[in-house]
Amino acid sequence: MRRRDLILSTAAAVALSGCAGSSKFRRYDGPEVTYVVVNKGARRMHLLHHASVLKSYDINLGFAPVGHKQFEGDGRTPEGVYRIDRRNPNSNFHLSLGISYPNVNDVALAKAMGKSAGGDIFIHGQKNPFRRDSKDWTWGCIAVANEEMEEIYAMVQDDTLIALNA
């Protein structure tokens, strides 16, 4: 009985010690990110301070990545200039930063097609960090690894411009 208790308590201590110092919320005190640029074709996202690239990331997009998002459920990632307009620290995808899609033009385009433009387009992490996601698996969002999302979440502030290019 003692040996079993010793093994269980040791296993619990090891498991808890891994959690003690880790937080998904990081601090960033470098240059301000003034612009986010997403190059959909190259599957790259760049965080810029004016004209200087601070960091770049490989990304995954919507499951139908070619072309501008036209309506809810089309699997496309929007194209154009938007803003980071909200933060979700309790995201189902680790952490997420909201993109101000849809704008007035997006709504009008979808309405002309008899559809809803949708919304809830985010830069986010992975749902399951232990599984390697296939390329372009989101419903129109921009996905990165969870560790990268922690860095992005700390660096990019609300109201930062984001350009999504083909």
Score class of each variant (00 low, 15 high):
Met45Cys: 01
Gly125Lys: 07
Leu61Tyr: 06
Leu61Arg: 01
Ser56Asp: 08
Gln126Arg: 14
Arg86Leu: 08
Asn105Asp: 15
Arg76Ser: 05
Ser52Pro: 09
Leu47Cys: 08
Glu147Tyr: 09
Leu54Ile: 08
Lys111Leu: 06
Ile121Gly: 02
His49Gly: 11
His94Arg: 12
Leu48Asp: 09
Arg44Glu: 05
Gly62Glu: 04
Met155Lys: 10
Asp120Thr: 04
Val104Ile: 04
Trp137Glu: 10
Gly114Trp: 10
Ile84Gly: 06
Arg132Leu: 14
Glu148His: 15
Glu72His: 11
Thr138Ala: 07
Val107Asp: 10
Asp158Ala: 09
Lys55Arg: 15
Ile84Tyr: 10
Ala110His: 10
Glu72Tyr: 11
Gly80Cys: 02
Val107Phe: 06
Lys115Phe: 03
Gln70His: 12
Gly114Pro: 07
His46Val: 00
Met149Lys: 06
Ser116Pro: 05
Asn60Ala: 15
Trp137Leu: 08
Met45Asp: 01
Ala42Trp: 08
Glu150Gly: 01
Asn90Tyr: 14
Arg43His: 09
Ala112Lys: 15
Ala51Val: 10
Asn60Tyr: 11
Gly114Leu: 03
Asn146Phe: 02
Glu151Arg: 07
Arg76Gln: 12
His50Glu: 15
Met113Gln: 14
Pro65Leu: 02
Gln126Ile: 05
Gly80Ile: 04
Tyr101Arg: 10
Glu72Gln: 14
Ser100Phe: 01
Gln126Asn: 14
Leu95Arg: 08
Ser56Met: 01
Glu72Phe: 08
Leu95Lys: 04
Gln126His: 11
Met113Leu: 15
Gly80Glu: 05
Ala154Trp: 04
Ser100Lys: 02
Ser116Gln: 12
Asn146Thr: 01
Asn60Cys: 15
Asp159Phe: 12
Asn146Met: 01
Glu79Gly: 02
Glu147Lys: 13
Asn146Asp: 15
Thr160Ser: 12
Asn105His: 12
Thr160Arg: 13
Leu97Asp: 08
Leu48Cys: 09
Ile99Phe: 04
Arg44Tyr: 01
Ala42Arg: 13
Ile99Leu: 05
Cys141Tyr: 05
Lys135Val: 12
Arg83Gln: 13
Ala51His: 14
His68Thr: 06
Ile152Gln: 12
Ala110Pro: 07
Thr77Phe: 03
Ser100Leu: 05
Asn103Glu: 09
Ser96Gly: 07
His94Thr: 07
Arg76Gly: 03
Leu97Asn: 07
Gln157Val: 01
Asn146Gln: 09
Val53Phe: 00
Val66Ser: 13
His50Pro: 04
Leu47Val: 00
Arg132Trp: 12
Ala112Glu: 15
Gly62Ala: 02
Lys127Met: 13
Cys141Lys: 05
Gly98Met: 01
Ser91Leu: 03
Asp58Gln: 12
Ser52Val: 14
Asp159Ser: 14
Tyr153Ser: 10
Met45Asn: 03
Ser96Pro: 03
Lys127Glu: 14
Lys55Thr: 04
Gly75Cys: 03
Val81Phe: 11
Leu97Phe: 06
Ala110Tyr: 09
Ala117Asp: 06
Asn103Gln: 11
Gly41Ala: 13
His68Tyr: 11
Asn146Ile: 00
Met113Asn: 11
Lys127Ser: 14
Val66Ala: 13
Ser116Met: 10
Met149Thr: 02
Ile121Trp: 07
Gly41Pro: 05
Ile84Phe: 08
Pro89Met: 06
Tyr153Ala: 08
Asn103Asp: 15
Leu47Asp: 06
Phe122Asn: 12
Leu47Gln: 07
Phe71Tyr: 15
Ile59Tyr: 04
Thr138Tyr: 07
Gly119Phe: 03
Ala143Trp: 01
